[in-house]
Amino acid sequence: MARLSYLKALQRALADEMARDENVCVLGEDIGVAVNNVTTGLLAKHGPARVVDTPLSEQAFTSFATGAALAGLRPVIEFQIPSLLFLVFEQIANQAHKFSLMTGGQAKVPVTYFVPGSGSRSGWAGQHSDHPYGLFAHVGVKTVVPATPEDAYGLFLTAIRDDDPVVLFAPAGSLGVRGDVDMDALGPVPLGVGRVHREGTDVTVVAVGHLVQAALGVAEQLADQISVEVFDPRSLYPFDWAGLAASVNKTGRLVVVDDSNRMCGIAGEILATAAEEMRLTAPPKRVTRPDGAVLPFASELDLAVQPQQEQLLTAVQEVYKSSR
């Protein structure tokens, strides 16, 4: 076993894939010097033909990657800021994603888009702190949000190898997570397969990304009163509905914690599906950012908008009580 950080896991996954497959190339802003510590050492190793520092032209280089992928390459794009994904929504959702269907299966677009540091990074304010994973899940772009170092490694590998576009969100709150990892066991993690981090029998908590750590904290806090099962979907689209059903059908109670806006968010989708298809014995709850939230700058305000461990704890207790 070795100690591996989430950030190192991302770095290692990209380095391993670039070494394994010469069609993998990486594009992005300031990646030559690795400002986000993911592309570290890649320029020196593979040169500027495979590690491309781009001008600040997100829309052009995103579709540029689509063209390169249509011609046989496997580009990976680093976005410094999650909100840049709004800028390139046309290029991903309306171009890259649609080529396979629109061409009747003639074309594939194996591009990976990744954001190292999505969500709030304290003090980055309104335009740098979003978590737009729900948007991509909604339009049908494969979307993954790993929560642990081994999943960061495995899902990044899978994303790069996948023949469709995949967006990988690495939450800012996860980058510092470290884990004891069997390095030899590191490998691809399939899309659409969730992971139960802690088994329980009373309440299922579905936690997305960095909130898995908060959910594990709540489960520990409540251990002598409520048995909490922590379910991490790992990929939001495709979603492991069967895995969730297995958990919810056992506990009968569901709370979702999701660091994105409430309206039309992934938490709402999970609740709706559970209500339609699973055996709930109590009304479920979700803990999210408010409707239409824009993260305010001041730390107190920023924190007031994000889901917190205390709110999750309260929600779990309420759902547990309401069924008795």
Binding site: A60, T62, F64, G67, A68, L70
Partner: peptide, 14 residues
């Protein structure tokens, strides 16, 4: 435009 340009880049790399 950008799609064609990306395809041109792939040709050069090849």
């Amino acid at each position: 435009g950008a799609i064609a340009t990306g395809a041109a880049w792939a040709a050069v790399k090849e």
